[in-house]
Nucleic acid binder design. Sequence first.
DNA 1: ATCCCGAGGG
DNA 2: CCCTCTGGAT
Length: 214
Amino acid sequence: MNQADKKKTAAEILTRLGRRYPNPRPALEYTDAWGLLVATVLSAQCTDARVNQVTPELFRRWPSVADLARAEVADIEGLVRSTGFFRNKAKNLKAAAQIIAERHKGQVPRTMDELVELPGVARKTANIVLYNAFGVNQGVAVDTHVKRLAKRLGLSASDRPEAIEAELMALFPQPRWGEVNHYLVFLGREVCTARRPRCANCPLEDLCPKKGLA
DNA sequence: ATCCCGAGGG
DNA sequence: CCCTCTGGAT
């Protein structure tokens, strides 16, 4: 497929996934940076329903960044236990809160470099916060879902994350990179799974060179 | 039993 | 690159 065809495909993918996922945002209750950061960290290996139940409890108990920075890790663990990976999450959230309180005057930083310095925050989470809370199109953050989708759809043949990101960013319009990221992650999770993709349920089936395969 | 919207460490 | 951390949903 040449570049022009790929772009055409990319545009079609955007329209179709836009219809399937009308609200291209994390299904989390928070849109401010701190709330979204906490909810996103908690959402690893956990359903949105549970995150949306636990996060408000956490903010009721520790309303501000400074409050969480002062909390006992054991108390945070108790509150986030049901979300999985709870020891890592509790320790990281407290440490992140401390850094934000001390180095950033209690404000969540607005750059990728500063965000990924926070414990428990890597490019994936940072990208979600940047795009959804700050409206910054830092780019497409490749995770395993995005990588798999890009390859199956024939949009990128590379295995190198930076190369895949560059190709996707060249294919999709810049203002919508954050959406692209969200769409591909969702489609990857719900439909185009690693082992047994549910092609019959895929809005992109007819565009996919790999349909029926894994 | 098996899978899962991540991050960090060896 | 591979492993580990965890509970919960299916």
